[in-house]
C-alpha cells in the first residue's frame, strides 16, 4: 500500500498531459472511469520498468508510515558505498540547527562535505533537501525557517561543486517532527535539514 501510493503519485507527474485532460473533462463518471483504467495500465508499465524510482513528491504522505527507507534503490545495503542507505547512515543525511537559526556549524559542514563527495561520485542521484523546525513557533514562520535551513544546506552543497539542477528544497516547517516530546532533547533533533536522494525521475 505504501509503495503503491508513492508510485501512483509518481505516475501522476509523468502523465501530466493525461491528467490535464482529466481535470478539464466535463463528464465526471464515465470518462473518469475509463481514464482510471488507462492510468492503471500505465502505472503497471512504469512500475515494471522503474520500480526503484519511488521517491515520492511528498515523502510524508499522510497515509504513510514514517519509514525512512523511502529510497528503495535496489541492492542497497549499508555496506554498499553507492547505496542510498550508505548515504543515509554512513555519510549522514541530516544536519541539525540551533533555535531559530539556519547557520551551519562545523559538525553540519562536515556532514555536508561528505554528502557533496558522495553526490559527486554517484551522479545518477539527485536530492531534495527538506527543512524542518521544532514546534516552538507559528506555522507560517516555521515554514519560512525550514526553507532557510534547507537552503543553507543547499548553498553549502553548491559551494562544494554539486550542480544546482540536482538539488531541490522543500520546507515542512513544524509539520513533520521525528521526535514528539515537548522538550529540548526532542526539539534539537527536529530542527534539521534532511537530504533525500532521488533518481531524477520525479523532477
Amino acid at each position: 500500500m505504501v509503495a503503491f501510493t508513492k508510485l501512483a503519485a509518481l505516475s501522476s507527474v509523468i502523465f501530466k498531459s493525461e491528467t490535464n485532460m482529466l481535470t478539464y473533462t466535463q463528464e465526471k463518471q464515465s470518462s473518469g472511469a475509463s481514464n482510471m483504467k488507462f492510468l492503471r495500465g500505465a502505472v503497471l508499465l512504469i512500475a515494471a520498468v522503474t520500480l526503484s524510482a519511488c521517491a515520492s513528491p511528498d515523502r510524508f504522505d499522510n497515509d504513510n508510515t514514517t519509514s525512512l527507507g523511502g529510497a528503495g534503490i535496489s541492492d542497497g545495503s549499508a555496506s554498499d558505498p553507492t547505496s542510498p542507505l550508505y548515504f543515509q547512515q554512513a555519510v549522514g543525511d541530516r544536519v541539525l540547527f540551533s533555535v531559530d537559526q539556519s547557520t551551519l556549524d562545523s559538525t553540519a559542514q562536515a556532514v555536508l562535505d561528505g554528502q557533496a563527495v558522495w553526490l559527486a561520485a554517484n551522479s545518477d542521484y539527485n536530492a531534495i533537501i527538506e527543512g524542518h523546525a521544532d514546534e516552538q513557533g507559528t506555522r507560517e514562520y516555521n515554514l519560512a525557517l525550514g526553507a532557510r535551513r534547507a537552503d543553507a544546506a543547499r548553498e553549502y552543497l553548491l559551494s562544494k561543486g554539486v550542480a544546482a539542477a540536482r538539488l531541490k528544497v522543500v520546507s515542512y516547517g513544524k509539520e513533520r517532527p521525528i521526535e514528539i516530546c515537548s522538550q529540548e532533547s526532542c526539539y534539537a533533533l527536529n530542527r534539521r535539514s534532511v537530504t533525500i536522494l532521488s533518481t531524477g525521475l520525479s523532477s
Partner: peptide, 12 residues
C-alpha cells in the same frame, strides 16, 4: 533502517 527496507520491500 533495515525495517524500513523490509517494509518497502514488502510494499513493492
Amino acid at each position: 533502517v533495515n525495517t524500513g527496507y523490509y517494509i518497502s520491500g514488502v510494499g513493492h
